[in-house]
Amino acid sequence: MSFVESKIGPGESAPGPEKTPVLEIEDLRISIASAGSSFEVVKGVSLTVCENEIVCLVGESGCGKSMTALSVMGLLPRGVARVTEGKINYEGLDLLSLQSRELRRLRAESISMIFQDPITSLDPVFTIGSVLQEVVRSHRNVSRAEAKEIAVRALVQAELPDAADRLDSYPHQLSGGMRQRVMIALAIALDPRVLIADEPTTALDVTVQAQILENLRARQREREMGMLLITHDLAVVASVADRVAVMYAGEIVEEAPVEELFADPQHPYTQGLLRALPDISVSRAGLYSIPGRVPSPQTPPPGCLFAPRCEHVLDSCWEGNPELKREANRSLRCFNPQPFEVR
């Protein structure tokens, strides 16, 4: 199936054409400074998340996914990483130009974030109820009783069992899955328009992962939030995404609606990722991995960043990095796209 012939149209769960963007990242560049030198880890990423849409950002560790997400929240590690260029728009506001106080007001209220490790992400010396209420009261001028009500409602929505009785629990009294539910409650308590989830299920037991994901998707659909889900797990992508952006070495290499990406992956990196999915019917000896390693951001290869690992590499691939070309509803950064063959 070629690029042009592929069937275009909204899938069953994908939003219609009238969708409005809530979060727009334009040509974002992030640099990390270490020991006197600085190098770019996010190299001109553009990404749009619309209302009632789940966009998955996929890629291996260190490809810049988390940095992209943290920059939206203004939470890049200080003194280490900083945005050097680009725009992040939320409902007409450029988040990068906001004063820290204005940005703070947007956090949790308009844009929320859930982190990877629920074990370390909750303050160990305060009860979950007190932290939830503190966050609510720092944004809304409500009484303690009302804040408590909002907190309980959020915990119920996050499907924490016995939510009302858990307000006085300390994080260490909860399991990893329960703590991630508390993190979800913190993120959705104030009904934000955008939810960023950075590998929300990676640190959890497999049995809990599906429940947490299902809960996130249910909350996203009923509130029509725009959601940016960062993951390296293609199974997660397949089960919840509307659109997928594949990142490699700080760049987006391919973006497409989820059905199309899985049916017709075009970038050799995306194809490699799909091929690397273990298939239960294939013997273990047959596990596939993409040869080579991610290039170090300090010493990127000349030309296309994926060229050293690409099996369809041409001579011209070493001469310049391809542009991200948009065609219909998908984009691709490749000089020599080849049809996907399952092996």
Partner: peptide, 21 residues
């Protein structure tokens, strides 16, 4: 720590995070 990042993401002020948490 991670929990301070969570509190920042919750929109608490730096002052409050430092003095309390």
């Amino acid at each position: 720590s991670d929990y301070v990042r969570t509190l920042r993401a919750g929109g608490l002020s730096e002052w409050r995070i430092t003095c309390k948490h």
